[in-house]
Simulated scan of single mutants.
Amino acid sequence: MRTNQFACAELPEGESYHRLGRTSRFRWWSTPLTLAVLAVLVFFLWMAIILSVTIVAIIGGSGLAPDSVTLSTIAEMAFGLLTSALFIPIVLFLVRVVQWRRVGSLLSVEGRLRWGWLARCTVVAIVPVALCAAAFLPLAKLLQPGLVPSEASGGTEVFAAAMTVIVLLVPFQSAAEELTMRGLLMQMVGAVGARSGERGGASAVSRVLRSPGPAILASGTLFAALYLAAHPDKVWTTAALSVMGLGAAWLTWRTGGLEAAIGLHVVNSLVQFTLCVFEGRMEQIGTGLVVGSGLPLGAGSPLVLLLTLAQVGLYTLMVAWLAGRRGVRRRSADGAFGRTP
């Protein structure tokens, strides 16, 4: 049977999620090339953001009328969420063009997004998120009363406009972060170790590199490390980000796809953004990277670490149990390697 040497690489056979980047077309330079192209694309994205903000500032003038401040805040929130969401096409481009493999390999071991499993994970996420949200007020009043907002503001029209932006954009912003951190990064790290049948694959270094540990650790802690570098005084938030990231990374490996991580991220971010709007704290949202990172309430305090541990622990147990019960695939199918379209 004729094969097309220019066709995209198929899923490697019998591999865990973190190893799906080690396709038949993987070469030693694939990872540094991916990082280089990513840096270039992010640079141009950043330049486009600066140019857009500058143009808006020039058109709108240097000041804002009092009644336009809220509208400006909503626009900034939408712009920040949209900017984060633009990482979706960037990551898909890197996988499809630079790494020359199917984009479905970034989604799950089945080579596609498992919509039914995503829906179940999203429903399951409501339970721990709701419990943590319900526990926030009494715990905050007990441990750190200053965390509880004193009054709500904004009005019905402002709330409706902000919620429209949130409902439309937060799912894409959350998915973009998971595609980047738990998807692309995890598979780049997981692809480094040689297979057992390849040259050097029997070495101890290769065995460690192709194990899930390094991929989970890297994809689960990189964002927290970058946040700590920029905010060295935010120790509690950094610790909570590490717990959330490691939990999402482990679930991605355990369930063979991004659905569990995306489900928790979307539900938690929707709750966080909604409360920020309801309580008149939209200025805290910024680009959505921290508020929309999937953390429970109480950022910047020991409470956020406590709630994150409880939330991630409960969600992990529930999803792992459900995945085992439903027989969710953890590895790609045997015989998948080397197939052509």
Rank of each mutant, 00 (worst) to 15 (best):
R2A: 15
C8Y: 13
A9S: 14
S16E: 13
R19K: 14
S24Q: 14
W29C: 06
A48I: 06
S62H: 06
G63V: 10
V69W: 02
S72N: 04
E76W: 07
L82N: 09
A85D: 12
I90F: 09
V95S: 08
R102F: 08
G111I: 04
L113G: 09
W115Q: 13
G116I: 04
W117F: 15
P128G: 12
P128Q: 12
A135W: 00
A135S: 01
L137N: 05
P138Q: 01
K141V: 03
G146V: 08
S150M: 14
S153R: 15
M163F: 12
M163S: 15
V165S: 09
V165W: 12
A176T: 07
E177Q: 14
R182N: 13
R195L: 12
G200D: 04
G200N: 09
V205Y: 11
R207L: 14
V208F: 15
G213K: 05
P214Y: 09
I216A: 03
I216H: 01
A218F: 13
S219K: 02
G220I: 02
T221H: 10
A225P: 03
L228E: 05
T237W: 01
A240W: 00
G245S: 00
G247N: 08
W250T: 04
G257T: 14
E259L: 10
I262T: 11
V277L: 05
M282W: 00
V290T: 13
G294L: 11
L295Q: 06
P296S: 05
G300I: 05
P302G: 10
V304G: 03
L307T: 03
T308H: 00
A310R: 01
V312R: 00
G313Y: 07
L322P: 03
A323C: 10
R325V: 09
R326P: 02
R331H: 09
D334V: 03
A336L: 04
P341F: 13
